[in-house]
Amino acid sequence: MSRASDQALIERFLEMMQAEAGAAGNTIAAYGTDLRMASEALDGGLGDAGRAELERLAGEWQALARASVARKSAALRRFFAFLADEGLRRDDPAGALPRPGSGRSLPKVLSADDVERMFAAITARIAREPKDPNDLRLSALVELLYGSGLRATELVSLPRNAVAPDRPYLILRGKGGKERLVPISDRARAAVAAWREHVSSDRAWLFPSGKGHLSRVRLYQLVKALAAEAGIPPDRVSPHVLRHAFATHLLEGGADLRALQAMLGHADIATTEIYTHVDSKRLVDLVNERHPLGEALVDVTKRRD
């Protein structure tokens, strides 16, 4: 990958950090500096770097303070996690980086009740008079984020006719021309159909804006404003958090992890495992209730008491 390509990926990552994660300006500046220095050290090959390259890079940090190493590792970990989740590379080599901190944290989680509150706020908007077509746009956006787990970039760049009223799925093409099938719920198709009536037939995009389509930054702003309206702290909600909620709630409902991997477009099952956090109590209860030795284990515990 060329230095120019590295720069484009870094800028895209920093845009996400600013708009979605709400990172402070100093943090974004520090991450940008660390990533550009890493790219320069790897002759513009950061985006394609493997474990060997990252181990060599980490070896050059040995003389640095622990806090500096932790910051550089954090920047690169988040960068590679972003590339993997966006489908821009098939693996995440960040395991080769030093771990002076506590390791990778789990994504933010929205409860089903939180999501219901957001949809209730949308319903209240649509019922207002006079009608505002942008409320229908918001409904379609959130239905696709939570109902289908689309990435922010995939969502805003959907062609006008990508979602067909008689087809319960759409086909997305990712890096390298690889395609994946994404299920579209009846609710989402209805929401898209209602919004599309307000999109001129000569527009290329389902969510047009100016001469192009809705930007990722604007999508983040819309979702956070909706969260505040629903009484949820905006820093807990983003397009990616809704995508994560899609996966988490499906998994909690009994969905297969491999099926989720296909729907989310993750090349590595480990990425899916990170983004489909399940409450630990539910897992313990599952073992106690479903494991063949569950009753025997309970009896042993009682005898020990």
Score class of each variant (00 low, 15 high):
G174Y: 09
G174M: 01
G174H: 05
G174I: 01
K175M: 06
G176A: 14
G176P: 07
G177D: 15
G177W: 00
K178D: 02
E179Y: 07
E179D: 12
V182S: 10
R187S: 11
R187F: 06
A188L: 03
V192P: 03
A194G: 00
W195R: 00
E197W: 02
H198W: 07
V199L: 00
S201H: 15
D202E: 15
R203T: 02
R203G: 06
R203E: 14
A204P: 01
W205T: 00
L206V: 05
F207N: 00
P208G: 06
S209E: 12
G210L: 01
G212L: 09
H213C: 14
L214V: 09
L214E: 02
V217H: 08
V217G: 03
V217R: 12
R218P: 00
R218K: 05
L222P: 05
L222V: 13
V223S: 01
V223D: 00
V223P: 01
K224T: 02
L226H: 03
L226G: 00
A228D: 15
G231S: 08
I232H: 06
R236T: 04
S238C: 01
S238I: 03
H240N: 02
V241Y: 01
L242W: 00
L242M: 11
A245Q: 10
A245H: 14
F246S: 05
A247K: 08
L250Y: 06
L250T: 04
G253W: 11
D256S: 07
A259M: 09
Q261A: 08
Q261L: 14
Q261N: 09
A262F: 13
A262R: 12
M263Y: 09
L264W: 03
L264Y: 04
L264C: 03
D268Y: 11
I269Y: 03
A270R: 11
T271N: 08
T271D: 09
T271E: 06
T272A: 04
E273L: 14
I274N: 02
Y275M: 11
Y275I: 07
T276N: 08
V278A: 11
L283E: 10
V284I: 12
D285A: 12
L286N: 07
L286H: 11
V287Q: 05
N288I: 11
R290E: 05
H291S: 04
